[in-house]
Simulated scan of single mutants.
Amino acid sequence: MTGCTMFRSSYFNLLLLIWIYTLYHSDCLKLWQPTKLTDIASGTSLHLSCIPIGLGPDEKIAKMSWFSPDGTSLQTSPNGRVSVMPRPEQLSMTIKKMQPSDAGNYTCVAIGEHDNILAKLTVPVKVFQSPDIMILPRENLEIAYGSNLVLKCMALGLGPDGNAPKLTWVTPDGYAVNNTFGRVSINRGHYTLTLYIQNIEASDVGKYTCRATGQKRSLLTEAFVLVAVYRPITYINCPQVQHLVTEQNGLIRCLADASPALHVSWKFKGAFIDDDDHYRQERKGLRISNVTHYDAGLYSCIAVVEHIGSFKRKDITVHVHNNPSIN
């Protein structure tokens, strides 16, 4: 082995020893933040984690703490807005519903056994005003089965980069609608996103959410509308003219159906009928015991869906005939 080779080998070993010493020496302890997104929209949550790297074998971190921009040590708050979560080898922190006043430098500090500061991590956090979004119609909806639905979402304001936020419609089952054709589709404008649902079905019921996202798909804000579907009142097997026979039990046939559930009431010659020994309201119609000629006349079958304030009336003329077995 030449002297030059020996020198190079010794130099390499020396560098290796210096690197190992540096790695495990306390001066090399670093605190690492895995989350890089610190531009936060107002109203959303800030999530920060602090992870120590390069801790020497003879060193020990007694505790780690997060400090707010005003120097206050952050602790889990009773109202749940601030959560500090110690986990194995890291310290995580969450602040919900961030406001512009929450902006500033957040600091994670690792403290040794002798209350000495081993390392610091400072994270600058910016809080920008989140754009508002509006959904039209602005009220929760109840529409008829088989009808068509149009929901429009509009962004009122820009994202943190000065660009219009991206709008996304999300269906009740969590599906983000991207297709521009078919029974469920969207039409995208510069500040608007319109959702179309054709021939609406029972499976379409639920919460429709419009989300506004900025860079790296970060959530800026969202709004939702609840959609309920009803089946209009229909009459089944309800002839306008019906015939009954005296001294028999008769049924004035009239079955009403709807969704949500309906309530049926009956009128005879303009007065409401109460259930008694003579009249009994059934699902298929009005049951009359021991029919007489006084039961002839105009009846009204009134169906009411109280949940949506809908009603419908069916008038029925009843003729009463003599019982042929009496003659």
Rank of each mutant, 00 (worst) to 15 (best):
P52D: 10
S42I: 03
V304P: 07
D102P: 01
S289R: 15
E59S: 04
S130I: 03
E113M: 08
I288F: 08
F224Y: 10
L158P: 00
K152W: 04
R287I: 07
E247K: 12
Q215V: 08
L149W: 01
L195C: 06
G56H: 05
Y235E: 04
N290S: 05
G54H: 05
K267C: 03
G206W: 01
S289A: 15
V177L: 05
S83V: 15
S73P: 01
I20Q: 13
S310W: 13
S9N: 14
N199L: 06
F268S: 07
F272W: 12
K314M: 12
R287A: 06
S83W: 10
S265M: 13
L17Y: 12
E306M: 13
R81S: 05
A212I: 05
V109D: 03
A261N: 12
L14I: 09
R253K: 06
R283S: 14
G56W: 03
R81N: 11
I197M: 15
I135C: 01
V320E: 02
N290V: 08
H47T: 08
N187S: 10
K126A: 11
T5I: 09
R287C: 09
G270A: 15
L14S: 12
V177D: 00
V304S: 13
A41P: 01
S289P: 00
T107I: 07
I143P: 03
F12C: 09
Y208V: 02
G206K: 01
